[in-house]
């Protein structure tokens, strides 16, 4: 709710991540308000004018120490809840890979994103691939795998509406997944500094309904791009 008020949640796991965030938020808000409250109360109560002579408390005795021991155990218990929630969501988003036959390739380079869409046949590296710079088109409610590459330095594929973020590392292929749940057009940012063009390395994601997506594919009969593949041997 808190995050969604600012950024729409457009992937299947966005709400789970928001849930962890909010869980932490409420725990933390409780502890924060409690300790700041006591803190300011003490400052007001034990001002010199109210209490001219201070007490002598070593804090080493058991009945005194309990005032920090109990809260500290309570903090530990809160931590357990947070760990469980965080690890569960982490497992779903990053460790688990639900199967699918749709894959998009994300190639990052200084300072542009190149998205290779599988085209009508649903397979990458075939003649009907649609290659687009700075535009990613996906169909709503379909599970996608992404294949993340980098051509030069570290980049980070970040789609705020998906709550998705993953570094791209040159020399490695990183796989992940997402399922868009809302149609619309949203920002993609690069979230890892990648040189002087880092701030200008934005892209857009277009989440389309089935019909829209099909008509987009039809419109982008990948002529220009494939001429290139054919003439590559001229190099």
């Amino acid at each position: 709710m808190l995050i969604e008020a600012l950024v729409p949640a457009a992937s299947s796991y966005a709400k789970d991540i928001d849930f962890v965030w909010e869980l932490v938020f409420w725990f933390v808000a409780f502890w924060f308000i409690l300790s700041e409250g006591i803190f300011f109360y003490f400052i007001m109560k034990f001002r010199k004018k109210n209490s001219p002579k201070a007490e002598y408390i070593s804090g080493e005795e058991k009945h005194q120490k309990k005032w920090i021991t109990y809260p500290h155990i309570a903090v530990l218990i809160c931590d357990v809840f947070i760990v469980v929630a965080a690890v569960k969501v982490w497992y779903d988003v990053k460790q688990d890979m639900p199967p699918t036959d749709r894959t998009v390739r994300v190639m990052s380079s200084q300072w542009a994103w190149t998205f290779t869409h599988p085209g009508p046949d649903g397979k990458l590296d075939t003649a009907d691939d649609i290659i687009k710079n700075d535009e990613l088109h996906v169909e709503v409610d379909q599970l996608y795998h992404y294949e993340l590459h980098s051509r030069d330095v570290l980049h980070d594929f970040s789609v705020p509406v998906f709550r998705l973020k993953q570094d791209a590392i040159p020399g490695r292929t990183i796989m992940g997944w997402f399922t868009p749940t809302l149609t619309g057009e949203f920002d993609i940012q690069c979230a890892e500094i990648c040189g002087i063009g880092h701030g200008l390395m934005g892209a857009r994601i277009f989440i389309e309904s089935k019909e829209q997506h099909e008509s987009w594919m039809a419109k982008n009969n990948p002529r220009g791009e494939n001429l290139l593949l054919a003439s590559n041997e001229g190099r």
Binding site: S109, Q110, W111, A112, N133, R151, I196, G197, L200, M201
Partner: peptide
């Protein structure tokens, strides 16, 4: 590659 560097600039 060079063009993709120039475009953001």
């Amino acid at each position: 590659i060079a063009g993709m560097r120039m475009r953001p600039m």
